[in-house]
Design a protein around this nucleic acid. Structure first.
Length: 453
DNA sequence: ATAGGGTTAG
């Protein structure tokens, strides 16, 4: 049993037991101090699970070589706990003489982005500048993604502008950055610059661009991108087809979306989910529900996004019992933690069905502060169905006006609801409240209209 | 000696 032998073993298909066996060989031959062996063992075990690899990393008898640190940092960057790679990067700097290299930074940056740690990401950036790695294209591309993920697309743009050489990934990252930060028009203009620069977009670039069309609800642009894909022989992979479905569905071309979905030879969870949500949004709840059931039969595990789709279908269709069922199934069978969107669907669903008490229960018992969409939905339900109820919670109305004091429609809603709840004792009270926040004229609503409520 | 970046939706 020697070095070469272990190396060969590590290249074969690995299972946990297999790796444990190799590990005991390593101990027996005292090769556990050997840097190259440590590196390869950590690499092999990280392909099983990052936590598994971490055990060996932590118990290494010598300080692991930089390669092993990089492998672990990379593993955490795509794990559910990316913060751990930021921690390890700190530990690397504090406790060893090793210096991070061009394989360390991309993954630390990715983790900073995933954790929205703008300040930490910025300090990693200055470290990169200090150590001269700012000429590395990969690092610059991940810097851009980090800044965009942290919501600061301006910094991403600076990195992009200062890059000495850009490739298709740089351009795609810049476009995706603007999409993430909700600047679809800027994304479009970067695409135009990209064409000027004669850089050819690939299927990843086009996925982001189709999302631009969805954001702008611009079917003309969507169709021209579809045509561009076909004439330029861009590979129609699962992601690109899924993005096309999404674009057609958001633009209201649900039939076209269905045709693409049905033609797909291979589909992933996202393809199903986007089709289900598309059907739900286009008022075709029954089909959304049957597609959801079909998806489960195929053996795919629905995620938070899939449940948003199906719950919104139930809400639009007024299928209260089904909605309750799916919500329960989501939590109990699939262990998906409900997000704001899910609670929003439930409030909307109960509210539309006139079940004010149930909607109120959801609002009261959810673990986060409701957003304005939910509050408006609840208030409208109250307005439409709650006229005879006495259970109005004026705090919810106050909260809505606090979160969104600049939205005129909220005051109109408030005025209407006040006729039921007595929250605003008279219209003059509301006038004072509006003046207090400097709102003189309600957009889309004159004082006369408010008075007339 | 082993390794790296970009993609969607509510």
């Amino acid at each position: 049993m020697n070095f070469r032998h272990i190396q060969t073993l590590l290249q074969q298909p690995k299972t946990t037991t297999h790796l444990l066996q190799i590990h005991s060989f390593i101990l027996k031959t005292a090769l556990d101090h050997h840097e190259f062996i440590i590196s390869n063992f950590i690499l092999a075990s990280s392909s099983i699970s990052i936590d598994f690899a971490r055990l060996f990393f932590d118990n290494s008898p010598v300080i692991p070589p930089l390669f092993a640190w990089n492998t672990i940092i990379k593993g955490y960057s795509k794990s559910p706990t990316p913060l751990e790679s930021v921690r390890l990067h700190n530990q690397l700097q504090r406790t060893t003489d090793l210096k991070p290299d061009k394989f360390t930074y991309p993954f630390v940056l990715k983790s900073c982005g995933r954790c929205s740690m703008l300040a930490t990401g910025g300090s990693v950036h200055s470290l990169i500048l200090k150590t001269g790695f700012d000429s590395d294209r990969y690092i610059n591309n991940t810097l851009m993604r980090m800044y965009a993920a942290c919501g600061n697309v301006g910094f991403a743009g600076q990195v992009f502008d200062e890059m000495s050489q850009r490739d298709v990934v740089s351009w795609s990252s810049m476009i995706a950055g603007y999409v993430t930060c909700n600047y679809p028009l800027n994304a479009l203009s970067v695409f135009l610059d990209m064409k000027q620069a004669k850089e050819k977009p690939n299927s990843v670039t086009l996925v982001s661009l189709l999302s631009v069309c969805s954001h702008l609800v611009n079917i003309k642009m969507g169709e021209s991108i579809h045509a561009y894909i076909l004439t330029n022989d861009i590979r129609l992979d699962v992601s690109l087809l899924t993005a096309l479905i999404g674009m057609y569905a958001t633009c209201g071309y649900i039939e076209k979306a269905m045709v693409i979905f049905n033609s797909m030879k291979e589909r992933n969870l996202q393809s199903w989910t986007i089709m289900i949500s598309g059907l739900a949004e286009n008022g075709r709840g029954e089909e959304a529900i049957s597609l959801f059931n079909e998806m489960e039969k195929v053996g795919l595990i629905p995620d938070a996004m899939s449940f948003s789709g199906i719950l919104s279908a139930c809400s639009h269709m007024g299928l209260v019992e089904k909605g309750r069922e799916y919500f329960d199934r989501m939590v109990k069978c699939y262990k998906v933690k409900p997000t704001m969107e899910h609670y929003g669907c439930m409030v909307d669903m109960f509210g539309r069905a006139g079940m004010i008490e149930e909607a109120y229960d959801v609002l009261r018992n959810m673990p986060m502060e409701p957003n304005s969409i939910m509050l408006r939905s609840f208030m409208s339900a109250y307005k439409n169905h709650g006229i005879s109820r006495s259970s109005f919670d004026e705090n919810l109305m106050k909260l809505l006006l606090k979160i969104e004091p600049e939205v005129g429609a909220n005051y109109i809603l408030s005025a209407t609801v006040s006729s039921v709840s007595g929250y605003w004792s008279d219209v003059d009270d509301m006038r004072v409240a509006m003046k207090g926040i400097g709102l003189k004229k309600v957009p889309g609503c004159s004082w006369v209209q408010v008075k007339g409520v």
